[in-house]
Design a protein around this nucleic acid. Structure first.
Lengths: 212, 212
DNA sequence: ACGCTGACTACACAAGCGTGTAGCTTGCTT
DNA sequence: AAGCAAGCTACACGCTTGTGTAGTCAGCGT
């Protein structure tokens, strides 16, 4: 996977602006980032930003679109290569998100980047299909609903990385943090928090107060 | 639990400003919200906002502080009353967050509201302690680390509520959505995604590439 | 050689922002 | 009765912002 951040120098001005915007939007947020600041980071005039992208909002849309395309390509590539996903999924997802992680986190929290989330749900459905095959009792909710919640949970650590890193005492972006995180997730995913009996009784209580 | 949003009318001006700020910061975000807008919503002059809170940033800090105190009180109250937590934890957490949910989500994502997150971790540790008692094999990560990640995952649906609601096809804030969500979470928490053998082999692979 | 198109810059503008200041009212203290 | 602190308002300042306009320059097809 070629480092995309490497030498911004030989990119076209348009690409440099987009990269700068991705970084500034990610670090500062959309409102605190300024066109002048982005232009400066890309070493162009502020007018050129407008010339290429029209407006600040359109620039963000171009960033979204670029990332969705990029991530679709990356996910297609990694889907064929199961070796990668085996080793350390946590570290891998960080590698995939790459330098755009702050931007993506903001986009996701604001409800944007729908294709990214939806694609993760789809991948989750396939993952669940395998598990369901060896499952005795029938699930109580359809597969897509379970994949949706699983996806949100999978993104939780990335979205709340500041709190998680602070509480863990180690940056989850560091190798040590990624390792610890993977260990924890492995443990959580292999040990149900609820026994079948407990779950049954709670489900019963839940049905008793069912709305609809 | 008395509805706090009910009649803003008879609150002091200072409290009205704080409530308005909480809502505007939550709906629009800190930067897009304006002192003038908050003042208008609180039906006071913009100068009074400054008079009471000093600056926009100080106003936010006052909001944070207020919420942390409020939630500590609420959590203490619900801790004694196990009946509530039994019924529908999802609906309950929404009730606890109350009208401040958008504000809290933003605060959490930005890494603020540390006391709130930390308290949830502590509650998670107690929860895990009970589970660990009836657990055969020893956990591979300490309890706090597992509680931290669990907390993040528990917050995931709230933080990413837009995507979750969209993907689920029903608003998670609605009674139907909360019911569906509770069902899904119950299912996920009572059915491990990884078999013990699978987990063991993955842990082995993980140790083989251990950093440090 | 001409001209045109697109990359690119410099500069100006209007609006909205947070903040500062001066002053008015109200109610309690002495 | 006087005074004074506190709640509250009106208004203006200066800055930054996104955007608009005019113009320069290089490359290229004809």
């Amino acid at each position: 996977m070629a480092s995309i951040e490497a030498d911004l120098e030989d990119l076209t001005a348009r690409a440099r602006i987009r990269e700068a915007a991705l970084r500034q939007f990610g670090e500062l947020g959309f409102e605190r980032a300024t066109i002048r600041g982005i232009a400066e980071a890309a070493r162009v005039s502020s007018g050129l930003v407008r010339h290429h992208f029209g407006s600040k909002e359109a620039l963000r849309e171009a960033c979204d679109e670029f990332l969705v395309k990029l991530l679709r390509r990356v996910s297609d590539a990694t889907f064929d290569d199961p070796m990668l996903t085996r080793s350390n999924p946590v570290a891998m997802s960080q590698a995939v998100f790459g330098p755009y992680q702050p931007y993506l986190v903001r986009a996701l929290v604001e409800g944007r980047a729908e294709p990214l989330f939806d694609e993760m749900v789809r991948a989750g459905e396939q993952w669940l299909a395998e598990i369901d095959a060896e499952r005795a009792d029938p699930p109580f909710a359809d597969r897509k609903a379970r994949a949706t919640v699983s996806t949100a949970m999978a993104l939780a650590v990335t979205v709340l990385h500041r709190h998680v890193s602070r509480s863990l005492g180690v940056d989850v972006a560091s190798p040590e943090g990624a390792h610890l995180l993977a260990t924890v997730i492995l443990d959580l995913h292999s040990h149900p928090a609820l026994s079948p009996e407990r779950a049954a009784s709670m489900r019963e209580a839940l049905e008793r107060i069912r709305p609809s």
